[in-house]
Simulated assay, not measured.
Amino acid sequence: MQKKLVICTPEAIRWQRFIDGDEQAFAELFNLHFRKLCNYGYKIIPDKDLIKDCVQEVFIHLWHNRTKLVYTEAIHFYLLKSLRGKLIRILKKQKKISWETLNPDLPCFEFNFTLQDNLTLSHTQAEQQEWLLKSLNALPAKQKEIIYLRFFNNLSYLEIADVMAINYQVVRNYACKAIKTLRKKVDIVLAILLLLEQHSFYVPSN
């Protein structure tokens, strides 16, 4: 007999309720993750309506296949991986870019978080945030995506490697290169603090 898993975190309990067919738990998962998934997806394909449709399709697929799912505490990681895989297939099918180009990099990946309201910041802080955003977007696309998944979504390097379908050591190497590059342009401690402050992600309305 399979040993029963002990579920202790609220997120894990919600996931198990969802697997068991609880529609309220499904709605809660959707509301908790929809916006973050949209913001990640928009960085890969900058089409607001397409991304919203894709995120909804990810959740619909989950609901219809919930009996095949297993217990996990890494729910956001699982959803990010599912969405990215779907978007990669769309890009390949639409042939907007060649698979050879797509495989090593996602050329359109772009940071687009909302900066803190300048009225609440000193002139120096506002300049630092603006410079940080420019410095991040100057990184190669793969490095940007790794930084985004690590600092904005709190994924481990192993999880990032799984989401992006690349080697763990490659992820670590790219992360080190990105941080080294940022360190040359901005105070790295300040950069990390500013990254962690940026929780008002958005999908542009136009």
Rank of each mutant, 00 (worst) to 15 (best):
N103K: 15
Y148A: 11
H76K: 12
L102H: 05
E130M: 11
S98L: 05
N65T: 09
N112M: 11
L133F: 04
Q169Y: 13
L149Q: 02
E73L: 08
H123F: 13
K86V: 09
I147W: 00
E110F: 14
E130A: 14
L121S: 00
T72V: 08
T67C: 10
N154Q: 13
I88T: 03
N154H: 15
Q125I: 03
I60D: 08
Q129R: 12
S135F: 06
L132V: 06
F151D: 02
A165S: 13
K81M: 10
Q129N: 11
L136P: 02
K86C: 07
D117M: 06
A175E: 05
H64F: 08
Y157I: 07
S156Q: 04
E130K: 15
N154Y: 15
E100K: 15
L136K: 05
Y78S: 09
I60W: 01
E100Y: 09
T114E: 12
A126V: 04
D117W: 02
A126G: 02
N153D: 13
Q143F: 02
Y168M: 09
N137P: 03
K92E: 12
I75V: 12
K92S: 12
P140W: 06
D162K: 11
I75C: 07
G85E: 09
K180N: 15
R66S: 07
L121R: 09
L106F: 14
E159R: 07
L79Q: 03
Y71N: 08
I179A: 13
E145D: 07
I146H: 00
L158Y: 11
Q94T: 09
L121H: 01
Y78V: 05
E110W: 12
T114Q: 14
N118C: 11
L136E: 04
E73N: 11
C54I: 01
Q125G: 00
H123M: 13
T72R: 12
K81V: 03
Y168N: 08
F77V: 04
C54D: 01
P104W: 14
L87W: 05
A175Y: 11
H64T: 07
K96S: 09
L136G: 04
A138M: 09
C108F: 14
I60N: 09
N167S: 12
N65F: 02
T181F: 10
F152H: 13
R84G: 06
R172W: 10
Y71C: 09
Y174L: 13
A126T: 01
L139Y: 01
F59W: 00
I97F: 01
L155H: 02
I147A: 06
N154W: 13
A161C: 08
E73M: 10
L69K: 09
R84T: 01
I166H: 01
L79T: 01
